[in-house]
């Protein structure tokens, strides 16, 4: 483990750490408890335990809303998109971090502008584009959109981080006869693992929970993703919260697993030695 300065948290920070643990575990218990209730109980006695365990919330989420299918779809889309995204970002950001030329600065700014605009502004021109490309009900299209829309944030995070990676590493690699590409993959990528894990988790979260692209570009039930699945119990006026909470519990599990897996990598990925200068 690194970051010696924190090994001893001190009394204040320890108390805070435990306090925040309580503060964040509470919503989990709230969600689980609510997943066994009906609307009247959720709203009129939100803090108490369910009077009867309404298991049917889960069976309805599984059978009526086909939540497992939706989870599998979202997982598939997220895994492929994040893998492609991180690969493309790694080579792109390396250049942006190292290249001193004007064009690289311009490209960086162009990327930056991408996450500053609310997505609603882009929907109409984007839909025309997707429609012209025949991209409805097409996972390839969705993956490309997910990669494109998560690119700005990932490029921003990774480029910033790579700037702090010592240039001596690249130069040593070049002397050893590595090309640009090999240098990135074999030398820079490993030492940048923490930020890749972070960017990966963030992108995964956004893609897994995406609502707007799924709504605009999917209409085949078999292709539906988690967010559409979650709305299966939102009626025109009456919303059934019990089965929605059951669906939330089920669909959160894979995300937590993925997060823990990535987050482990953050700390394992750091090899001993002077890697940053």
């Amino acid at each position: 483990m690194k970051a010696t300065s924190f090994r001893n948290l001190g009394v204040g920070l320890t108390v805070f750490a435990v306090f925040w643990l309580f503060v964040t575990l509470y919503p989990l218990s709230f969600t689980i408890v609510s997943s066994f209730k009906d609307n009247t109980e959720i709203f009129s006695s939100p803090m108490s335990l369910p009077s009867v365990l309404r298991i049917e919330n889960y069976t309805r989420a599984l059978l009526q809303a086909t939540i497992l299918r939706n989870i599998a779809n979202s997982l598939f889309l997220s895994v492929i998109s994040v893998a492609l995204l991180l690969f493309l970002v790694s080579i792109c950001s390396y250049v942006l971090a190292r290249e001193k030329a004007k064009w690289a600065v311009v490209v960086y700014l162009v990327f930056l502008s991408g996450f500053l605009l609310p997505v609603h502004s882009a929907l109409i021109p984007l839909t025309k584009l997707v429609s012209a490309l025949g991209g409805y009900n097409n996972y390839a299209m969705l993956i490309i959109l997910f990669v494109s829309y998560n690119a700005p944030l990932s490029v921003f995070l990774v480029t910033g981080y790579m700037k702090t990676v010592s240039k001596e590493l690249d130069e040593a690699a070049f002397l050893d006869g590595c090309g640009y590409f090999q240098t990135v993959i074999y030398v820079i990528l490993p030492v940048s693992a923490p930020i890749f894990a972070t960017a990966g988790i963030v992108a995964f979260l956004f893609i897994y929970n995406d609502l707007i692209f799924s709504i605009l570009f999917l209409s085949k039930k078999t292709l539906y993703t988690v967010s559409i699945g979650l709305s299966a119990f939102v009626g025109e006026r009456i919303v059934e919260y019990g089965p929605i909470f059951a669906s939330i519990v089920l669909s959160s599990l894979p995300m937590v697993a993925i997060y823990l897996l990535f987050q482990e990598k953050v700390q394992k990925g750091i090899t001993e030695g002077a890697i940053k200068g």
Binding site: L88, V89, I91, C92, Y94, V110, S113, P125, S148, A151
Partner: peptide, 16 residues
Amino acid sequence: MVLPLLALYLLFVFYP
């Protein structure tokens, strides 16, 4: 190395 991501980005994000 910049091109693949930039091309996608320009078309699907920057253009809209």
